[in-house]
């Protein structure tokens, strides 16, 4: 594990998180993941590996899916970040959250926030993916519980419902 703090002093960084403007005091090289979890108490993003392999720390940054364990917080300056906490509208679940719930896409739940964000990103780029495309599109997010089938089915179901409505 590397010391993610830079010799330079903490600096103020401003960005938008789930639609709200936020200011944090952080070392520039501190990981976005730690800032989200520890300073902003947004603990939905998880650390599975800390090296960009598992995707459990996935968030959307300006609409792009990133591994927040690899992003120095300085890079988030001015960006718009969406975490799992930003998907549901109050008590109303996002359609992907609904689908994960109904199709068995979440077992232990630790990969789920990252997996759902990866799925929103996938559907944003490709509203009607094939099963193959879903498997390909989610292959950067590891899940040890589900064997992926029910996750893939959840995404397909969500896509079907959204395009039907």
């Amino acid at each position: 594990m590397t010391d993610s703090r830079d010799r330079r002093a903490k600096t103020e960084i401003s960005f938008t998180v789930n639609g709200e403007p936020r200011k944090v005091h952080a070392y520039p090289m501190e990981r976005l993941l730690d800032v989200l979890r520890q300073q902003l108490q947004l603990t939905g993003a998880k650390e599975g590996c800390g090296e960009g392999e598992c995707g459990s720390c996935s968030v959307l940054m300006d609409g792009v899916l990133v591994n927040s364990c690899l992003v120095p917080v300085l890079q988030a300056e001015g960006a718009s970040v969406v975490t799992i906490e930003g998907l549901a509208a109050g008590e109303r679940l996002h359609f992907l959250q609904e689908a994960f719930l109904e199709c068995g896409g979440a077992q232990c739940g630790i990969c789920t926030p990252g997996m759902i964000l990866a799925s929103t990103h996938l559907l944003n780029g490709n509203p009607k993916p094939t099963m193959e495309e879903i498997r390909e599109g989610l292959s950067g997010n590891l899940c040890r519980c589900t064997g992926y089938s029910q996750i893939v089915e959840a995404v397909a179901e969500a896509a079907r419902r959204r395009t039907a409505s």
Binding site: T43, G44, K46, E47, I84, E85, Q97, G109, I110
Partner: peptide, 11 residues
């Protein structure tokens, strides 16, 4: 679990 509200130990 789907909303990220579950509390795991590191949370």
């Amino acid at each position: 679990k789907v909303t990220g509200r579950s509390q795991y130990v590191d949370d």
